[in-house]
Amino acid sequence: MTKPVLGITMGDAAGIGPEITAKTMLTHPGLREQAAVVVIGDADAMRAGAQHAGLDPAAVTVIDDPSAASNDPTIIEVLQTGPSLAHVPVGDIHPDAGDGSYRFVVEACRLAREGKIHGIVTAPLNKAAMHAGGHLYPGHTELLAEQFDVKNFSLVLSAGDLYFFHLTTHVSLRQAIEGITPERTNNVIDLVAAFCRALGKPDEAIAVTGLNPHAGENRLFGDEDADVLAPAVEAARARGLNVHGPLPADAVIPQAVGGKWNMLIVCYHDQGHAPFKAVYGDEGVNITVGLPVVRVSVDHGTAFDIAGKGVAREASLVLAAERAAALSMGWGEVWHAAQAGE
């Protein structure tokens, strides 16, 4: 195999997913030199998305199997997954769009399990729409983990060589605090270490952020850093891992952006997402580490407010596809290293 086959899931039909997917497929021909790319979604929604993006809707064609893809950069080859979503209005939550976005991911996972695609690239879905469609998942990451039956996984934001692993993600702040347990902290530290080994960097330094201000300031601002995070770091260091922390988040995150750390474990969603998106914007992607197949996503949402207006930027989706293409060929090493670390 000289090129990996990537499946781009179209995301929510009412959001910007179809138009940024159309832009990615038709205006970035260099991507096809890195991978064969198919869209897993709905042909009618893709035609509408192409039209909204100022592109030719006739470029959308339906194929039955990834092996039938020509990878012609002038066309968008779609694996039709479920009934047409032509009736879904742009810019509003719709249960059929939510159901569709769920189906696209499930189909991508099936194709990956069968070896027909080698990487999954996800355009954004809308969680409220997915829930309205009857699928009560917190987001992509948890749905993918269930489909592949994995327990130890992490949402990872990445820009270049910088990776932000997350102890918790799509839960309330109260639930996040409860979810930062010794077991979870140890599991994620081992997952990062496995990822580093697979990248050929077994001695890479790993920083763990504190949960509380000033990493608890010797218990002045909470006990979690001393009682949960610090013992997990000490245990990891005893296993020979190059782990440091817990370190105050307001200090260590700027240090990571400045290049001192490439591997960072943050405690909860906004502790990682807010500074990462503020600094990197379209230059960042979302990788799920812990799955048997590479999955890379945009680091933004469905943007209902601009959907259908042709102004949505595809830069993050293009970068996600490029990262998936680059990682997919060696992802088996990441998976095996992660399994060995469990």
Rank of each mutant, 00 (worst) to 15 (best):
I8W: 00
D225V: 15
E217W: 14
S154D: 03
A324C: 09
A48G: 11
I265V: 08
I93F: 01
L291W: 03
P57K: 05
N242A: 09
A58K: 07
P246M: 08
E333W: 05
G133S: 06
V62Y: 02
M263H: 09
G119Q: 13
V257D: 05
D227T: 14
K3L: 12
V60I: 10
V257E: 01
E204T: 12
E333C: 09
P66F: 04
I206Y: 13
R103Q: 08
G115Q: 14
I287C: 12
A326E: 15
Y280N: 00
S316Q: 07
H273S: 01
L125I: 14
R47H: 01
H28E: 00
P95H: 06
I40F: 03
D99W: 01
N218K: 15
D227C: 05
P18Y: 06
G222F: 12
P292W: 11
A198L: 10
T302C: 01
G200L: 05
L155E: 04
K3P: 11
G160C: 02
A340E: 14
I40W: 02
P73N: 08
A35I: 06
H214Q: 02
A326Q: 15
E33N: 08
L6I: 00
I180K: 05
K127D: 03
D270M: 02
E114I: 09
A236E: 13
P254W: 12
E178N: 07
P231L: 09
G30C: 06
G82P: 09
P138E: 05
H135Y: 10
G30E: 14
M329V: 15
A145R: 07
G222W: 12
A86N: 09
T74K: 10
E204A: 15
I75V: 15
S328A: 15
I75G: 14
A45L: 05
M25R: 06
G341L: 14
A35H: 11
H28L: 00
D44P: 12
G133I: 05
A256C: 11
T81P: 06
V150S: 00
R103K: 06
M329R: 14
A215H: 05
A198H: 12
P95D: 04
L143I: 11
K127N: 04
A338Y: 10
E183S: 14
T21N: 12
N218C: 09
L317N: 01
D56G: 09
G160Q: 04
H87R: 13
G17R: 04
V243T: 06
G210K: 03
T2Q: 14
K127T: 03
S101C: 09
F276C: 00
L111S: 08
